[in-house]
């Protein structure tokens, strides 16, 4: 019987706080003994590096010349915020985030609806849809890179065929900003739409089928049912999925690194931070960029949770 009543007990801890029995105290101790190690490891592997990053970001510190390490306080930050390269990376990151999340939401929702209703290749469809999620992002990036490349690709040939030769089959997709960004986004969308649609599928599954049936009986069209019944009822699932994907897209690195390495102004915040740290061994500047990126991710999460009332822990009951 313990599980059936446990949630009710956890909701009212204040009432019996005064009369904590020995048993309850022992339970608390055991709880932290069991959960503590995981908690400590989790905090240690993230809190320590980020504190270190904040500290290092106040220095002009290059690994090749460690003796010239010099305290510059916010110097690195003022360099970042006056550098057009940073703003280009920020614009690219925001563009990728907004476009991919928007496309994935629509596409992911359509696929979720399909997976929810489809009868015939139900299992096959779900399995195939899951594959992009499970393969390595670098592999997906190479697959798309090689598809669009002028030398090894087939996309130019296909476009040439379907436009009856109007498309230049030697078109260089990675030669300029707009096409390169498009391919990066296509790859990102292909790789992560399955995750989005699975989250939305779970939201769809929670909707009471009778409600939709009732709307149908009352003569509601498909679009009316979609916007008046289905979508309002899965608002929570949509918000969680959008939040997860937004924060994930904002960190985009693998696709950009494999496809362009930031050439033709396709740099994103993550690749910029990587270049400063690893290629140029500018530890101070790299740390400052890391802190900026961290704060931005933090701000986005805060906006979602406070602004849109995404209840992440509350949904766990």
């Amino acid at each position: 019987m313990s599980t059936a009543t446990a949630p009710a007990e956890t909701k009212t801890p204040s009432k019996d706080k005064a009369l904590l029995s020995n048993r309850a105290k022992a339970e608390r101790r055991l709880g932290w003994k069991l959960a503590g190690p995981a908690f400590i490891v989790m905090v240690a592997v993230t809190a320590w590096p980020i504190l270190q990053a904040i500290w290092l970001s106040f220095f002009r510190y290059r690994l090749t010349d460690p003796d010239a390490r010099e305290f510059v306080f916010l110097g690195n930050y003022s360099v970042i915020f006056t550098d057009p390269v940073f703003y280009q990376a920020l614009r690219n990151t925001l563009l990728i985030t907004v476009v991919t999340v928007a496309v994935e939401l629509v596409l992911g929702f359509a696929i979720a609806m399909l997976m929810h209703r489809v009868v015939l290749p139900r299992r096959t469809l779900r399995t195939i849809v899951l594959i992009p999620y499970s393969i390595i992002t670098v592999v997906s990036a190479f697959a798309w890179l090689y598809s669009f490349r002028t030398d090894t690709g087939y996309v130019n040939h296909w476009l040439n065929t379907i436009t009856f030769g109007a498309w230049d089959s030697a078109f260089d997709w990675f030669g300029s900003w707009a096409p390169a960004m498009s391919v990066i986004m296509v790859s990102e969308i292909w790789k992560t739409t399955p995750f989005m649609s699975l989250l939305l599928l779970a939201g769809l599954a929670q909707i009471d089928g009778a409600m939709e049936e009732a709307a149908k009986v009352d003569g509601a069209t498909f679009w009316q049912r979609l916007f008046k019944v289905i979508l309002p009822n899965m608002k929570a699932a949509i918000m969680v999925a959008v939040l997860f994907r937004t924060l994930d897209a904002f960190r985009i690195f693998d696709n950009v690194f494999i496809m362009t390495r930031g050439a033709n102004d396709t740099e994103t915040l993550s690749t910029l931070a990587y270049k400063q740290t690893i290629d140029r061994v500018e530890i101070g500047m790299g740390s400052a960029l890391s802190v900026v990126l961290f704060l931005m991710v933090f701000a986005i999460a805060l906006i979602f949770i406070k602004g849109f009332n995404v209840d992440l822990a509350g949904s766990r009951k």
């Binding site: 908690f39 989790m42 905090v43 592997v45 993230t46 590096p49 980020i50 270190q52 990053a53 290092l56 690994l63 924060l247 904002f250 960190r251 690195f253 915040l269 993550s270 931070a273 990587y274 400063q276 740290t277 690893i278 530890i283 790299g286 740390s287 960029l289 890391s290 802190v291 990126l293 961290f294 991710v297 999460a301 992440l312 822990a313 766990r316």
Partner: peptide, 21 residues
Amino acid sequence: LLVALGVSFFPVISLVTPLFD
């Protein structure tokens, strides 16, 4: 649980610079 969620939102590249050093 909230800390676990927060950690999973962490931008990976932010950990790289200090760890590299």
